[in-house]
């Protein structure tokens, strides 16, 4: 079919704004957008710059915004991408571009990847033999390692929109592998590293990453797993640890969440500055008739003994 490929051109030397350039392409509708781009590059304009390699959705290199949706050019057919004979190809939004469709992946993808130290370190107790690991465990590791680093998860991330320094779901998925690989011997140091500024506690678990992952790796659940492990290992930042603990304590003793206490305990009872921060909001809310009184002062819930027992049983199981 005859299509018009509107390809975003941008050169750093020519000011900050780029513009679309139109290329007519005659191509089968079952061909991919990557095929169409290669055709333009080989036949019309050898200077257009984009990445793409494996053609099969495994190398993750050709992520672009195609007809206003973020996706991989090699996994999108011309027929599916065209809209009244036109396909637009432009950069994704959250990472900077050095030319045309060439992203600054070092800054926005690879450096973050390196920051989580995505390898494993083993004890090397028996270097001549493989480690004994159950197939169920390696199956889970393989699932996360099927990540192609296409960064569609990062691109969908709610936190990344407001703070691009956030390490992001892509790197955290890599971190999951290192932390949950039983052969690795640095779990605690890793969890500590992941709890540093811009680390895993900036994730707002909005499930955007899981929605956007083309491999079904479910990065959001991976981050949950990392954080739960950190809480158990007593790693993580204090306010968050307090928040989790207070939340659990409240539900354990009342069956329900005690929000007033949660706010106080999250900051830490001895953290005067943190506590004072809460005061203006509390006063204002009180004046407006919002009175989140501690539960022990108002409603006694039925069934809370039963819930307490569930918690106790769980704690026994731990």
């Amino acid at each position: 079919m005859e299509i018009t490929l509107k390809f975003y051109r941008f050169s750093p030397g020519n000011g900050s704004k780029g513009d679309f350039q139109e290329y007519p392409v005659e191509i089968d509708e079952s061909a991919t957008v990557l095929d169409a781009l290669m055709q333009v590059k080989e036949d019309q304009d050898s200077t257009i710059a984009f990445r793409g390699s494996c053609r099969t959705g495994f190398c993750g290199d050709c992520t672009m915004r195609i007809s206003r949706r973020n996706r991989m050019a090699c996994s999108t057919t011309v027929g599916a991408a065209q809209n009244e004979g036109t396909i637009t190809v432009e950069p994704v939004r959250l990472i900077t571009t050095t030319k045309d469709m060439m992203y600054d992946l070092d800054t926005w993808v690879y450096d973050k990847y390196k920051a989580v130290e995505p390898w494993i370190e083993t004890d090397q107790k028996s270097p001549d033999k493989e480690h004994v690991v159950s197939n169920k465990v390696v199956q889970d590791l393989r699932k996360v390692m099927s990540c192609t680093m296409c960064w569609l998860c990062d691109e969908g991330c709610s936190t990344m929109v407001v703070d691009r320094k956030f390490v992001g779901p892509l790197a955290l998925t890599k971190a999951y592998r290192s932390v949950f690989d039983p052969r690795d011997n640095r779990t605690e140091a890793r969890l500590k590293n992941l709890s540093e500024k811009n680390g895993m506690w900036d994730c707002c678990h909005c499930y955007e990453a899981s929605e956007h992952c083309p491999k079904g790796i479910d990065p959001t659940e991976r981050i949950f797993a990392l954080r739960n492990k950190a809480i158990k290992a007593n790693a993580g930042i204090p306010t968050v640890r307090n928040h989790y603990r207070s939340f659990a304590k409240s539900v354990k003793s009342h069956g329900w969440l005690d929000e007033a206490r949660l706010a106080i305990e999250t900051e830490g009872l001895t953290n005067i500055k943190g506590q004072l921060k809460q005061v203006p909001l509390a006063i204002k809310a009180f004046r407006k008739g919002k009175r989140p009184l501690p539960y022990f002062l108002h409603e006694k819930r039925e069934g809370r003994d039963r819930i307490k027992r569930i918690f106790e049983k769980w704690e026994e199981n731990e």
Partner: peptide
Amino acid sequence: KCCGFPILSSSEDNS
């Protein structure tokens, strides 16, 4: 998208 509430205690600025 996310309203910001879940990270109020861990990352107030982003929230």
